[in-house]
């Protein structure tokens, strides 16, 4: 397998920091695979660690934030494509997915493949739409409500009660215990991520997560379940362990079958003491802990690349239980001249 032709894969989300993006893990997965890949990093900010990590990316380009609009975004990708001849892009941020999905045909015309959900699949699992989503696909979810105005917080419909979570449209969630807290988080989240802001009932139980890859026809190509062992103050996993939870995987297969999800996603669920599962969030992309799945025997980044290129991928169901990841930080020594190149030329 290693003598195949080189493919060039561009990856975003190189922000391997305290609330990490998945890019670095995705790249490690690709490098561990049988793929003969050249890696192009796409970074939004000049200090994303992945830019500077030795041996990780072959080249990095800065790209404009999606909020700048599609024109600047596509222009920049076209420029990078011209220089690098991209075969695949794996986007890793929620906020950029909309553009990548919407313009996937245009990217394909440029010779760039993606393996992403359809716009409809992407839109219907938005946080503000979860109650309807749950109803449509028969998934149990905590009561939630999309809020447009902070005044609505003092008049939430029953049975919503404290404590609940208040969540930004794209990112960030805070647990709140009273109205003052709720209003202050509402203002913060709406200013940062726009409206609506979502209020979701807190459920007692253990948080379990599944990383899953759907082929777009209802088949689950890969799925690995994990329990977060320790959560940082930013709500991110510090350590996690793969688990054998048959019911959880059953629910996962069922969701993929009903939604015909195309691409990777992460299901965040709460398992209550009574053994009930509540879906609290769907992340429509590869999560940062994907390298645990690779370590447990399912190389999802590799499979995404193969599916993107139109290869047939045989579904895998086996993985090792009890594999762990422990996230650590490591001080990389860089030189100001590298920083200068990113600042002045936008490339390194």
């Amino acid at each position: 397998m290693s003598n195949q032709k080189t493919i060039t894969v561009a990856v975003t989300g190189l922000n391997n920091i305290d609330s990490p993006g998945p890019g670095v893990s995705v790249i490690r997965g690709i490098k561990d695979s049988g793929l003969n890949a050249r890696i192009i990093g796409l970074a939004y900010e000049n200090l994303e660690p992945g830019i500077y990590m030795p041996g990780l990316v072959d080249k990095t380009y800065l790209i404009p934030f999606p909020s700048t609009g599609s024109e600047a975004f596509i222009d920049r990708l076209a420029y990078i494509n011209e220089k690098e001849g991209l075969d695949i892009i794996i986007p890793n941020f929620d906020s950029e997915l909309y553009l990548f999905i919407k313009y996937s045909d245009q990217l394909l015309n440029m010779g760039i493949h993606t393996f992403l959900p359809t716009l409809k699949q992407f839109e219907e699992r938005h946080k503000d739409n979860l109650p309807e989503y749950g109803e449509k696909y028969g998934i149990k979810m905590p009561v939630s409500k999309a809020i447009q105005n902070s005044k609505e917080l003092s008049n939430l419909p029953k049975p919503l009660s404290y404590p609940y979570y208040i969540k930004g449209k794209f990112y960030e969630a805070f647990k709140v215990n009273n109205n003052n807290q709720a209003v202050s988080y509402f203002n913060r989240l709406s200013a940062k991520w726009g409206l609506p802001v979502v209020v979701q009932q807190a459920i007692n139980g253990t948080e379990v997560n599944v990383i899953v890859l759907g082929d777009g026809e209802g088949n689950t190509v890969s799925a690995v379940a994990m329990r977060k062992q320790y959560i940082t103050d930013k709500g991110k996993a510090w350590g996690g362990i793969t688990i054998n939870d048959e019911r959880l995987l059953e629910i996962t297969h069922d969701i993929i079958k009903k939604t015909k999800w195309r691409g990777a996603m992460e299901l965040e669920m709460i398992k209550t003491d009574e053994g009930e599962y509540y879906l609290i969030e769907i992340n429509p992309r590869i999560p940062a802990w994907v390298y645990l799945a690779v370590g447990a025997g399912q190389n999802i980044p590799e499979m995404v690349c193969r599916l993107a290129m139109g290869e047939k991928v045989i579904p895998v169901t086996e993985y090792e239980y009890g594999k762990m990841f422990i996230r650590y930080s490591w001080d990389l020594i860089g030189d100001i001249s590298d920083f200068e190149k990113i600042i002045i030329f936008g490339e390194l």
Binding site: I336, F339, E340, I343, I344, F345
Partner: peptide, 19 residues
């Protein structure tokens, strides 16, 4: 100041940089 011909300025005393 450390000034490169690309217009990148590094100020060693504070660690700040400018363009």
């Amino acid at each position: 100041l450390a000034i490169s011909e690309n217009g990148f300025i590094f100020k060693p005393s504070t660690g700040e940089s400018f363009t």
